[in-house]
């Protein structure tokens, strides 16, 4: 498997909401294996919507999306297969409050991949150690801090052994001092070779980790460039305006 393998190929994606508002306009994106792509943009630019089309949490009316070789269309079998291979981390963590941390991780591999519980348990505990939550395995989400919960959420997604990880503003709901612990985990994940698409405002993370940075505005993909070029010498006026606001 070469590192040129296309993991996500989105072409001309258009999405309209029922009220007529167009959320995505001809959005294109290519993500190769092992790449880290960061998507930035003003609020309402459609960056989260775009991200969520990759695992069928949002539908789209026009265009095509191929994830890991499988076309995203009305075929339920495709959608299920894609969701197994794509992990997602949400802004609001979305841990299952009625299950312990460990059970949160075990749920999907046991019920979706039909793996034996004992085997998944070992893997889950190892993952929890990796994100630094080892001793809290038997606690419930309500007993953890925000930063801890998000790290558990990352471990939960990783427990399905996905080939792509999507992050939807993973640190936006955290206190500033908790942001770092989550970014550290994400950084390590990137270093270990995971294909990642991250929607975030964290410029430092983008500069350090991203292979390419994408600017989205009003549903369009405006600019795609390596971080060096994106932050220091952007091509488009809109990019410059956006950077002026956040830097």
């Amino acid at each position: 498997m070469t590192s040129n393998q296309l993991m996500i190929e989105a072409r001309g994606v258009n999405k309209w909401y029922p009220n007529g508002f167009q959320a995505l306009r001809g959005a294109d994106l290519e993500v190769r294996r092992g790449e880290k792509v960061v998507i930035m943009g003003p609020s309402g630019s459609g960056k989260s919507t775009f991200l969520r089309t990759f695992n069928a949490l949002e539908d789209f009316q026009e265009g095509s999306i191929v994830v890991d070789g499988m076309a995203l269309n009305n075929d339920l079998r495709n959608i299920d297969a894609i969701r197994r291979e794509v992990g997602m981390v949400f802004q609001q963590f979305n841990l299952f409050p009625h299950l312990s941390v460990l059970d949160n991780l075990l749920l999907a591999p046991v019920w979706v991949r039909k793996r034996p519980r004992a085997e998944v348990r070992e893997q889950a505990l190892a993952l929890l150690e990796r994100v630094g939550i080892g001793p809290q395995a038997d606690k419930f989400p309500g007993q953890l801090s925000g930063g801890q919960q998000q790290r558990v959420a990352i471990a939960r997604a990783l427990c399905m052994e996905p080939r792509i990880m999507l992050f939807d503003e993973p640190t936006s709901a955290l206190d500033p001092e908790k942001v770092r612990e989550v970014l550290d985990v994400m950084r390590q994940l990137a270093f270990d070779g995971m294909t990642m698409v991250v929607v975030t405002h964290e410029v430092g993370f983008a500069r350090e980790v991203a292979d390419r940075v994408v600017l989205m505005d009003e549903g369009e993909v405006v600019e795609v460039a390596p971080p060096q070029q994106f932050f220091n010498n952007p091509e488009h006026e809109r990019t410059r305006r956006f950077l002026a606001q956040i830097l």
Binding site: D80, R83, F90, N94, A108, W111, V112
Partner: peptide, 14 residues
């Protein structure tokens, strides 16, 4: 919360 549904579906649960 709606997020519960989304998290569950994104993990591949039917």
């Amino acid at each position: 919360p709606r997020g519960q549904l989304e998290a569950s579906r994104s993990l591949g649960l039917s």
